[in-house]
Nucleic acid binder design. Sequence first.
DNA 1: CACGATAATGGCACCGGGTGCCGAATGGAA
DNA 2: TTCCATTCGGCACCCGGTGCCATTATCGTG
Lengths: 208, 208
Amino acid sequence: MGRPLAETSSPDVRRSGRKPSTSRGELERLALELFATRGFDETAVDDIAAAAGIGRRTFFRYYPSKNDVVWGDFDRELDRMREWLNTSHDELPFMDAIRGAVIAFNTYDPATLASHRHRMSLILTVPALQAHSTLRYAEWRAVIAEFAARRLGQRPGDFLPCVIGYAALGAAIASYEQWLLDAHTPLGALLDTAFRELAAGFCGHEGP
Amino acid sequence: MGRPLAETSSPDVRRSGRKPSTSRGELERLALELFATRGFDETAVDDIAAAAGIGRRTFFRYYPSKNDVVWGDFDRELDRMREWLNTSHDELPFMDAIRGAVIAFNTYDPATLASHRHRMSLILTVPALQAHSTLRYAEWRAVIAEFAARRLGQRPGDFLPCVIGYAALGAAIASYEQWLLDAHTPLGALLDTAFRELAAGFCGHEGP
DNA sequence: CACGATAATGGCACCGGGTGCCGAATGGAA
DNA sequence: TTCCATTCGGCACCCGGTGCCATTATCGTG
């Protein structure tokens, strides 16, 4: 539901002190490699730490949990999507704007596509990650709900914006699941279909 | 998303052997009471086991995890909802049938309403339970998707039924969240609104 | 009643994720 | 060099969850 970035890349004013031994991006690379070969559950935090040459305790200073490694810098991507929606044209119907934003933020160049596919495969198939992802999805939904609320003249916590946030999330996840099952149809096309169905209320399919 | 039952209540043919020390229902009661007073995270499995007078090891023979206690016998409720949908009239548009089923299976008599509210409050606010619930929701979605697939002449794993399952789940959860925030509006009314919006594609709200 | 089959119990050791604490290592700045 | 900020990483600990296995309770049968 958004492209996680590898590097934090915020060149904070470093005043003094010991230099970090590694980086979030480096840990993410190593961890995903281990997950790919050995499996997520079969890879212990100690294994990742050992591969990076750091202590287990230090790992948890880079990522709050083993699960979070898979998500990389998801928050930055959310900020960009929020910005995109902020600057969308008001003439565009809001469900079209949401559809456009979701598609735009899930379009990858071929170079990074394979790794993204692996990442999403983990998130959507490993039970521990499926469960954990709920907490990340909440932030994603909030971005959608905020936008919908603004367009509808309501507050982000109001009922309808929340329903829209949840429904949009569902459409996005279902698209990803389908894409993982069968890579033949590009993700963008699946997202487009799902969000158009959503905006149409799933009508026009039933018949005798 | 469905009324969990307290008792397994399947009077299995008991041939011989030691009698169970307690029951799922009893553990559920005790656990929810502890969660209410002390909080979910602050209640250890040992506390529940001690309250029930059983060993910690035995607890895990009644429930596979601490999280699962909150869900009670969710599977039975799913079976009932599946059955309900199976016997729904074919003339009824399928989105209306889904709406009706969800409302029916989330209507409680006042006696059990308070405890159900507590249960759902835990599920939707405690992070550990929010995350875990994803796995339960999957079964719920499957019931919806199966029904939608049958009505649309597709297979349960096909794209559109899955999207509908996810969207319906979102509508239901959003309704519950709203209900927990403000019990003034009855849950049934919120579900009705959410599912009607869903079936209408959220149109008719934007304007100058 | 005694015996054996059956089933539940619960203690024990163990694993893995995650945290609080604290001293040690590192590197820039005064 | 000295001081300070920052990171590191070991250690002990908590908690959820599991495999193993001896123990205990119950029922049916001889």
